[in-house]
Design a protein around this nucleic acid. Sequence first.
RNA 1: GCGGGUAUGGUGAAAUUGGUAGACACGCCAGACUUAGGAUCUGGUGCCGCAAGGUGUGAAGGUUCGAGUCCUUUUACCCGCACCA
Length: 1191
Amino acid sequence: MKYFHEQIEAKWQEYWAKNQTFAAENNSEKPKYYVLDMFPYPSGAGLHVGHPLGYIASDIVARYKRHKGFNVLHPQGYDSFGLPAEQYAIQTGQHPEKTTKENIARYREQLDKIGFSFDWSREVRTSNPDYYKWTQWIFIQLFESFYCKAAQKALPISELIKLFEAEGNANVDLVCDDGVELFSAEEWNSFSSEKKQEILLQYRLTYLAETEVNWCPALGTVLANDEIVNGVSERGGHPVIRKKMTQWSMRISAYAERLLQGLETIDWSESIKESQRNWIGKSVGAMVKFALKPHPQPLSGGEGSEPVQAFNDFGYKTANPTIAKNLVGNARENRKNPTESEDLLWQEIRNQKLGSKFRRQHYIGNFIVDFVCLEKSLLVEVDGEIHETQKEYDEGRTYELEQLGFKVIRFTNEELKNNLKSVIQTISNELENAKPFNAQSLLSFGEGSGVRFIEVFTTRPDTIFGVTFMTLAPEHDLVSQITTPEQKAAVEAYVEATAKRSERERMADVKTISGVFTGAYAEHPFTKELLPIWIGDYVLAGYGTGAVMAVPCGDERDYAFANFFNGKEGMPEIKNIFNQDISEAAFAEKTGFELVNSDFLNGLGYKEATKKAIEALEQIGQGKGKTNYRLRDAVFSRQRYWGEPFPVYYVNGLPQMIDAKHLPIILPEVEKYLPTEDGQPPLGNATHWAWDSVQCAVVSNQLIDNKTIFPLELNTMPGWAGSSWYWMRYMDAHNANEFASQEALNYWENVDLYIGGSEHATGHLLYSRFWNKFLKDRGFITPEEPFKKLINQGMILGNIGYYPFIDVTININIKDNPHISKKYFNVFGYEVFAKLFFEFLEDSNNINNDSNLHIIFSNTIISKIEEKINDNRSFILTEILKRFKSDYSFINNDGELELLEVLNDEYFELSLGHINYNYEFKRIPIKGVDLQTNKIDVGSIITDSTFKYSVDISINEMFANTEIGKMSKSWYNAVNPDDICNQYGADTLRLYEMFLGPLEQAKPWNTAGITGVSGFLKKLWRLYFDDNGLIVNNDEPTAEMYKSLHKTIKKVTEDIEHFSFNTSVSQFMICVNELAQLKCNHRKILEPLAILVSPYAPHIAEELWSQLGHEGSVSTAAFPVFEEKYLVESEKEYPVSFNGKMRFTIKLSLDLSAAQIEEIVMADERTQAQLQGRTPNKVIIVPGKIINLVG
RNA sequence: GCGGGUAUGGUGAAAUUGGUAGACACGCCAGACUUAGGAUCUGGUGCCGCAAGGUGUGAAGGUUCGAGUCCUUUUACCCGCACCA
């Protein structure tokens, strides 16, 4: 009887499906075990051999655990919302749902062929309304929650309202937007409903806010940080720009610390944990405030300069910052409701009627004054009826204001009403005599009044005395306000230049140091020294406060910056505060130094000094300890069709949740999947929302006839919404009332083993942990972490193609252009080539008579071979030309101007040797350089509209190489698992994928070795059958047979527990080889063996099991138990070493003592031969292990 | 630059955690049988050497009776993060 995998595999797959063999129970006496695979996105390409790698591994564990008596949940589903289906829909007009369904059907077919023990009754699809109903529901829960730092958990928003009603928000410690306005309980209660909603939005865990987002014009949508790789979109590699947009965000930053701490409790690979730590980016340090000094001299220096400029540069923020919010708000209210007399006066003095600008109800220091002329330091107060108490208060107030350098004059209501003219005259006179405003005096008021600060975050508060200057990000808000007129031009030019550079360029260009002095100064909090303020693009606007205190002696970047601008205006000498040499480089270590030149920190090390510095800063109110996280809130809106609709509508522009009882909000049908004419997301095309005619009346509490009055949210949720909680849905996949029942959630808790790719390290795996923690906080689930153990299967790499690696010399002779000199480039890749090529052309300094451009390609991948490498080593290489035409023909925004176009569009052949080719290019001069839009100005260099190059190419060496890379459809390298299944069978595929190497390691796919495992299965089969049928007997096996079996039980058990599947396969081979050698056809060996093999090769195992006479599936059989007694040996083949080198082996009884062994070994003639008469100094005998003679 | 990982025959890889390096498989070589096949079986196969022997786990050093394994230094590659203050 021969082994035919086709029949066996089809038969058992059908059996499993029919008998629901792998359906998990939600009530079971057995211990639970939850094995999860990362569910696939059903792409049009179908599965390739890389997909099943993880699934096979998890399936082995699932089957093994079932044998071990666990109630195993091993589900599978589809992450079926996403971009590719939508892109396809845009191209073809096919509904994404249709293509998604087709793709899923194909995936399912392929998965079924491999024989996974999935419980398909629990399948989920994120694009099913039954499913996304609960995604929407979770969104609502997030909206209805805020994060309380004190409780370290999310709480319902109703608690927040209670809190505000009771005590306002001044003293609560909650996670919220930056810069929320402070209010008291009374104020809160007096706010309008809309105002309350606006405020609450700043606290909700999902919130709508105008934020700077990553906008990808090519995809027409925003992207989350994890969807961007090296400054371009993860999907498609399109450029991404920063843009301010109103978008939904997830306040994941609230969970930064818990996400970080939680990593300690889970069994994940160090690299993934490290990625997450990196992404969260915790740094402990301090916020330090540096007082901004107003410009000490009259600003434009010279006569005729208006003191008012102090305000232009200094701003009008003359209020005590600690109470500024309240003052500003109150002032606004006051302005709305002026008294009669105040209004009279205002009409007379407004609009510079007296020659100076007045402000009314303006905040100065701790007060709101009635009228002020800042330029002339003149305050005008209007008093009502004077009571004694009021008088006293006014006196104090006047005193304080005078201390700030203001002259205060007072009028009564009566004076104003009856004698307005004389009042005006008095004011006018005072203006004549008034001193100009002195910002310095306002500052001298100290904490409070108008002092403005630059706030920085530092991890090294201990180096505070090493600060010699400050650097702001060019985008920093203060830049425009503090820059002196002298520096204005330079600063603006720099800011503009920086803004033009794309994110990607700024990242690529790390080495170049650039910056500009603003002319402004800040004050050192302790020494009161003046610290010049610079701007530089090494400071990132998005991290910390976008400003740094520069400590050149202790920070490499500051050091480089200080050195670069050494001697320039505004760059002080580097100050060394370490007892270390900093002449060559900054001393950036946190250990091994003592502070000097550091006042009260002298003699201290990092730890103590940090503590002390923070304490001192806190005392003077200019700093506090602070932990900073890099983790940003995640943008949650996508301007896309194929995603979950938000359960949101708007009233007066404020978002409202659609009541949960109306969920799911079904994704409406649209004509077109593109944005609407007026730029709305694709959902704007929908004319009919399934729920509106039926439910809208309820939603809005108003009568509406088939039309929504309230606009709906037209964005959809991002791809990661549905995948952030799917493991819970599997627990109770068909529950219509809850996302999963309490019983199911309590029973399955969380995932015991999660297997999937590492590409989700900072996306899915972080968001899932976030949602899990949130749902726990709100009491829906109990576990803190969703995935106890995570294994990342390595990528199976495919052969991307054969590539010629060539070493080329290209001489480009620019015939018609004498303005080109010789220049050598060592180029790695033609993209670089093209770039340098342009740089070269742009560089008008390269002018002399030599007109050769010499470019050396070394080991450069030029093109995919289109014909076989052996065919005369001749290939058609079109790539260079193609690149010129597409990527490096720069087109401006209007799509008109092309920088360079190849006119003679011919292929050229490349072969070893020498060719000459004439290119003709058309060049159109373009003005202006805009790297974001790929506009480039070369107009000043070459004005010819066409010119010619003679290109002389010598190919020095050429050889073929296979390029290994990620499998994907675009490379046509995807190996289809079906083909393997058809040819060798699913069991062979399963074994082979495991045999390839350790699960976690990336490996190239190569079917060369597949005959090995295929042969193994045949060999296994032949232990049970010969040509005539079953040959299994009931004889008592020999000790050797038992030994072979139990060795295997032990090894395989350990291997599965340690996820070392490749070595198990080896052990099966060893075992089968041994048993074949022993001619073992004994039931007592072969029955357990079939069970052992079944997790790996379930089909053949089922067949063997049934042929051995068993009813039902082998999956219910108990796993064989290892018994030590079968492995006990009486003898050991000892290796005998001399000075550590193994010379021979000797078989000795294990009963022997070390002394006895020594006696026997020393007596052995081989020992004597080795020793040649010498006596060993030492004899090391480890019984059961080794014998080593030293001497 | 920081963090994580990897490095062993022609190839994929093992190595009981400090104890005979290269299991198992592919490939290759030789042979058997033969229905000539991409079947099955047997033997060989790290490298140098006819052999004895020498040598060998990216490199250099160290600890140890003994190191692929532990320590120090270093190189290359892969992955993640990246002027993160």
